[in-house]
Design a protein around this nucleic acid. Structure first.
Length: 450
DNA sequence: ATATAATTAAACAGAC
DNA sequence: AGTCTGTTTAATTATA
């Protein structure tokens, strides 16, 4: 495993006791129990709640994160859209209007301390910062400039930091497979550059990274509920790594990912022709299954990275090709990755890419499955892996795909069916009748609120 | 000791 | 011309 994501040396200095915090949390919330029952009993479970109310000073460094940023960062859920700024609470702008969580927290800790912590370098990697920025945007896509803006807005630390961080942001966008460039549909009229969005395929990876970053035991919270969550009950949030997940979402996530990955169900939010809508419930649900974890910075715990960055640097993947990326050759593999697999493994994908006009891929041939990685890792990764596992025709079929569009379509349908089946099983396991119902619930909830 | 993840800096090209 | 954006390479650091 690598370092704590985003934990640069100075962060270590600024966030002393991080390890202790983690272990502390582990002791309080993890330990193989099912803390969600207690911790998520309130609409927004908080770290404080999980700790049984003991205000351990050690945890305060993370509290700022929980309380200020991620409380409202519900990973793209509809609620997230309504909260323009996850930090408004602490800024004091929306303190009263943000619901129970914010109010309960602001009282728990001094705002001064929170502000101070905001001046510290955030314990997030740039990838995560970008991810959060994009996810918080109404359209789930942002131009670089606005990503800068978001970061600046929510992490004042950067306002005084040397401008190198912007370079890092761009670097991440560029190299991290989790982010995709979307051409602005209106040409350049809207400004320079492209929009960037989160590749839905990698969203779980990012979420996992987010979760891992501060709450490695979050998986303990992800155990499926014994009984189906009642639609009438308020959403129960699990506090994962500072992110609040709706319990049902977590359980449904895997299935959702499967469904979304089904060829016939592949709505590309980054399609330049259609407005991005990652706010759809199905697109924001994520997997809680560690096995679904990808590669985002978890290569240590899981096999191979799929969602790794296109470079050794930003991450996620140097394992992409199963070759050590150190030394001078790294650059070449870089290029190879860029032009090649980048974690997408089927011709189908590459076709989609071409159809969508996704991220420009210089001389990008069909994305090939990462040689060694595809077998083990893709397994770890979200949808496609399951596709591969659910049907041996999945990824392997990509190579031996029958010629002709018709045959291809049949394969697609077959795959689709299998994926849906698998999704159904997962949903069943999760105690959720169907994903469509889940999303309907979400929608109806939303409507009801309106 | 090694591999990996992440950060940072820098160079460069193209678009605006 | 200057700035911004995007890509790429490389060095460095920290951690499992």
């Amino acid at each position: 495993m690598g370092p704590i994501i985003g934990m640069s040396p100075d962060k270590k200095a600024e966030f002393p006791g991080m390890q202790e915090q983690r272990t502390g949390l582990r002791g309080a919330c993890g330990a193989g129990t099912l803390p969600e029952a207690e911790c998520a009993s309130s609409p927004l479970a908080t770290s404080v709640d999980c700790r049984g109310g003991s205000e351990d000073e050690e945890l305060t460094n993370l509290n700022w994160l929980h309380e200020n940023l991620l409380q409202n960062f519900t990973l793209g859920g509809p609620e997230a859209l309504t909260s323009a700024s996850p930090l408004l609470d602490i800024e004091g702008d929306h303190g009263a209007s943000q619901g129970p969580s914010s109010s309960s927290h602001s009282s728990a800790h001094g705002k001064g301390r929170e502000r101070d912590s905001l001046k510290s370098k955030p314990p997030f990697s740039f990838s995560l910062l970008i991810y959060m920025a994009i996810e918080q945007s109404p359209r789930k896509s942002l131009p670089v400039k606005e990503i800068y803006g978001w970061i600046l807005e929510h992490f004042p630390y950067f306002s005084n930091a040397p401008t190198g961080w912007k370079n890092s942001v761009r670097h991440n966008l560029s190299l991290n497979k989790c982010f995709r460039k979307v051409e602005r549909s209106l040409g350049k009229a809207n400004g320079k550059g492209s929009l960037w969005c989160v590749d839905p395929e990698y969203r779980p990876n990012l979420i996992q990274a987010l979760r891992k970053q501060h709450f490695p035991t979050a998986d303990a919270f992800c155990t499926p509920p014994a009984s189906p969550p009642s639609a009438s009950s308020p959403p129960r949030h699990l506090f994962l790594q500072g992110c609040s997940f709706k319990e049902s979402d977590i359980d449904a996530a895997t299935a959702m990912m499967l469904l979304n990955s089904a060829p016939g169900h592949h709505d590309d939010p980054c399609d330049s022709d259609t407005p991005l809508d990652l706010s759809r419930p199905d697109s924001v649900l994520v997997s809680s299954d560690p096995k679904q974890d990808h590669n985002y910075s978890s290569s240590g715990s899981v096999g191979l990275p799929r969602c790794s960055s296109r470079s050794s640097s930003s991450s996620l993947s140097s394992v992409d090709e199963g070759v050590p990326q150190r030394g001078p050759q790294r650059g070449q593999s870089h290029r190879r990755r860029r032009a090649g697999s980048e974690g997408f493994h089927s011709d189908e994908d590459s076709d989609l890419w071409e159809e969508r006009g996704g991220r420009s891929r210089p001389s990008a041939p069909a994305r090939r499955a990462p040689s060694s990685s595809s077998s083990s890792s893709s397994s770890s990764s979200s949808a496609s892996s399951n596709a591969a596992s659910s049907g041996s025709n999945g990824s392997s079929g990509a190579g031996k795909r029958p010629a002709g569009k018709r045959a291809r379509r049949e394969v697609k349908l077959e795959l689709d069916e299998e994926l849906k089946e698998a999704a159904g099983s997962l949903l069943h396991l999760a105690g959720i009748r169907s994903c469509t119902e889940a999303s309907k619930r979400g929608k109806s909830k939303k409507l009801g609120r309106k």
